[in-house]
């Protein structure tokens, strides 16, 4: 007899479950993790280099870099002084919780305070796949154009902070900051927005203060 069975299950629930496991593992090791997402070329790796240098001697940082191919980004992070694990997704447009699980096993979590996961450059797919990180950060950049929140709402909806990079280019490209920020505000009311230039260093102290504050708060909750 034909029959309809109610299911009502989130389509990526298997990934969500594994993401929770990743998070428990990070919690137990008292390591704070962020998922850094952006379009290709927004400046994720430049921001990470600046972050590694800026937190040197204050926080012990590990990196997980996701890319379809090459280890250029992990090499850059390593050159800047962090432990870096490269994940080559072999064509996948995003990282998922399974990939992060295996990368976490390769890191000595006991020797770290913070893990930054650099997702594959893409404004669509990474938004749907939880990794188990505690916070998500989107790196946007001026040359991408001011319409991106309107075109990629899913990405702007799910993040805890938006870093607006390459503000040194504002005098040279048409970019309506108020229009851009209005889109972000509707999608994600009250989200932290930090304007920076990884080239000139402008605004970076604000980013580092935010990040350090997040780690401190996390450590407070998860005790000594």
């Amino acid at each position: 007899m034909p029959q309809r069975i109610p299911v009502v299950e989130k389509i990526l629930s298997a990934n969500d479950r594994l993401a929770l496991e990743n998070q428990s593992r990070l919690d137990a090791a008292r390591v704070f993790a962020i998922n850094m997402m952006a379009s290709p070329g927004a400046g994720k790796t430049s921001l990470i280099e600046r972050t590694i240098k800026g937190l040197e001697g204050r926080l012990r940082l590990g990196m997980i870099n996701g890319d379809i191919a090459t280890s250029f980004d992990a090499d850059r992070a390593q050159a800047a002084g962090a432990t870096a694990i490269q994940i080559n997704t072999g064509g996948d447009c995003h990282l998922d919780a399974v990939m992060v699980q295996s990368a976490l096993s390769q890191l000595d979590l006991g020797a770290l305070d913070l893990v930054v996961i650099e997702n594959v450059g893409n404004l669509v797919c990474p938004a749907d796949f939880k990794l188990g990180t505690h916070k998500s950060v989107l790196v946007a950049s001026i040359p991408e154009g001011d319409d991106k929140p309107y075109k990629y709402p899913g990405m702007y909806r799910g993040v805890n902070a938006v870093v607006i990079n390459k503000i040194d280019l504002l005098p040279y490209v048409p970019f309506r900051m108020d229009f851009f920020k209005k889109g972000i505000e509707v999608l994600n009311p009250g989200v932290t927005q930090i304007e920076v230039s990884c080239r000139t260093g402008e605004g970076l102290p604000g980013w580092l203060t935010w990040l350090e504050g997040q780690v401190k708060e996390f450590k407070k909750i998860h005790g000594k």
Partner: peptide, 29 residues
């Protein structure tokens, strides 16, 4: 423009549009 057409406000909540689930399946016993 995502602002409210009535008051121009940008303080909005998403009511629907982010659904992403499997609701039911049909099976033969």
């Amino acid at each position: 423009d995502f602002a409210c057409p009535q008051c121009g406000g940008t303080n909005a909540k998403v009511k629907t549009g982010e659904e992403f689930h499997l609701e039911a399946i049909d099976v033969d016993e």
